[in-house]
């Protein structure tokens, strides 16, 4: 089957982000989505540390240590961009002003519970950052991740075993093998890569997945 690589997955997520959306991209894999947003769409990228209208990385030598993103990497500001303080930044999330956030995950449950901040391992120093605010604040929370761990366990699960970030907050999961819609009734498969069947996907995840009616 044609498993998506990281770039293809980022491009797949980018396709679903409409013109005019206010979007927060989480640290790591989700940050890559920005590279695939169509240039003919105006999309507002928000960064938790106080900017809207975030642009791409600067040219080498043009970095400004006071113009960074949530991952503390240098970025640029687009014409029309704005700076604001932290309470306003998180009011944008909690207040339901951010249309879409895209986050990575350790696990997501079929009803949309998210675990992405802490492995819970003894001795691990916990850090949460803005993950909990983003997860429950945005109008739609998308997760992008590889469906299986390196050991082959499904990261889409009946019930998360890692500590939760938020309850029933994820509406859609994009993975390298399939796209899922989540809700109170469980997970529905919206899309699969070529060569994958619903039976095989049920076997890989161990979940009673529903299949969405074909579109069109």
């Amino acid at each position: 089957m044609n498993r998506l690589n990281r770039e293809q997955l980022a491009a797949r997520v980018a396709r679903d982000i409409p013109e005019g959306a206010y979007v927060n991209l989480g640290i790591g894999l989700p940050t890559m989505v920005a590279n695939f947003l169509p240039v003919d769409r105006e999309i507002f990228l928000q960064s938790e540390n106080g900017l809207l209208g975030m642009g791409p990385a600067p040219e080498p030598g043009q970095e400004d240590p006071e113009l960074i993103n949530a991952g503390k990497q240098p970025v640029t500001l687009l014409a029309g961009g704005a700076f604001f303080h932290h309470a306003d930044s998180f009011a944008m999330m909690r207040g339901g002003h951010i249309d879409i956030c895209v986050l990575g995950a350790f696990q997501v449950s079929t009803r949309g519970d998210l675990a992405n901040w802490h492995t819970g391992e003894p001795g691990a120093i916990p850090a949460v950052g803005g993950a909990m605010d983003l997860a429950i604040g945005a109008k739609q929370t998308f997760v992008m991740m590889e469906l299986l761990t390196k050991q082959g366990a499904s990261k889409l699960v009946e019930r998360c075993t890692y500590p939760l970030t938020g309850l029933a907050c994820v509406s859609r999961v994009y993975t390298d093998l399939a796209v899922f819609d989540l809700g109170p009734d469980g997970a529905t498969v919206v899309e699969m890569v070529d060569g994958l069947t619903i039976e095989k996907l049920r076997e890989l995840t161990g979940l009673p997945l529903a299949l969405a009616a074909p579109r069109g």
Binding site: A87, F90, A127, G130, M132
Partner: peptide, 9 residues
């Protein structure tokens, strides 16, 4: 440890 938005709030 405090979620970032709760810290700000």
């Amino acid at each position: 440890l405090v979620p970032q938005g709760n810290l700000a709030a």
